[in-house]
């Protein structure tokens, strides 16, 4: 009796979760298939009403748009470079934090915590000014630097949690088995830490892909403007009458990489998020 009641509750709960997570996504996909005329004339309702479907037209328009193509290219390039560099630097730091005794460890951890809580907008003004002085305003580098430093805390936490899980004995056993320190690191530590490095990379990529504040304030042209910023500026002359379906198509395209990553690496992301934020 009680058991079935519980079961029903869980099924309803699952349905609610699925609805919560997927409904807005379904909505934006549905919106992207409404024709632009229908939007101008107003077409309330979840699905395109009959005769107002646009087929793939919105997607074709978006992918033909130079600004959009540039933005996608910028986003992919900037996010990937920041991710690789950030993860390399974080791996070194995390290894030291998890495995070595050195003075200043607390300082590193506290800095990471402060950065994780840092209000990014308060950096906009000084960075805007500094980057213009250094001549890296509106360049990839101008975005890569802040992305790297703001993803470092999460990457360091995730990775040091993974490094801590690798038993010390593993390294010592390798040394006793005849390995040099480098061999022990290469043949034992790196393969064992690989999932952690990978997880940290995914989370870093998400952050960089998601960023908006730096994207709009440290760029001025399509030279370096990433996708979220480009979307928000997308033919946005009249903020109350945007080309909604076109934007929706752009949003769907920008979301596809994230969905693919989530689909393939769900387990790793969950492990990384929870180990990086709350230790078990």
């Amino acid at each position: 009796m009680n058991m079935t009641k519980n079961r029903v509750g869980i099924v309803i709960g699952c349905a609610l979760i699925l609805g919560w997570c997927l409904l807005p996504v379904a909505w934006i996909i549905s919106l992207s298939f409404k024709s632009q005329e229908a939007i101008t004339n107003g077409s309330p309702g979840f699905f395109p009403s009959s005769g107002t479907g646009a087929g793939w037209k919105n997607y074709e328009d978006v992918l033909k748009d130079d600004q959009f193509k540039h933005a996608i290219f910028n986003s992919i390039g900037i996010s990937l470079i920041s991710t690789v560099l950030s993860v390399i630097i974080a791996t070194l730091a995390a290894y030291a934090i998890a495995r070595l005794e050195f003075r200043g460890k607390r300082f590193v951890l506290t800095t990471a915590l402060v950065i994780a809580m840092f209000p990014v907008v308060s950096l906009v003004s000084p960075l805007f000014d500094m980057w213009r002085t250094f001549g890296i305003y509106d360049t990839w580098l101008g975005l890569i630097l802040p992305y790297m430093s703001f993803t470092l805390p999460l990457a360091i936490w995730t990775l040091s949690a993974f490094f801590r899980e690798i038993p010390w004995e593993m390294e010592q056993a390798a040394q006793v088995d005849g390995a040099t320190s480098w061999q022990a690191f290469r043949k034992v530590i790196v393969p064992l830490a690989a999932p952690g490095v990978f997880t940290a990379a995914i989370l870093t990529f998400f952050f960089a892909w998601n960023d908006f504040v730096f994207g709009i304030s440290l760029t001025s042209t399509e030279n370096a403007r990433p996708i979220p910023a480009a979307l928000s500026f997308f033919v946005g002359a009249d903020p109350f009458n945007r080309p909604a379906s076109l934007l929706a198509a752009g949003a769907v395209v920008a979301t596809i990489p994230i969905i693919v990553i989530v689909l393939f690496f769900q387990r790793k992301i969950v492990a990384g998020l929870t180990s990086g934020a709350v230790k078990g």
Partner: peptide, 15 residues
């Protein structure tokens, strides 16, 4: 260094 001593060790958690 341990690798130059040519001794074999079995660890508590097997490692």
């Amino acid at each position: 260094a341990p690798r130059d001593r040519n001794l074999a060790m079995v660890f508590q958690n097997y490692a």
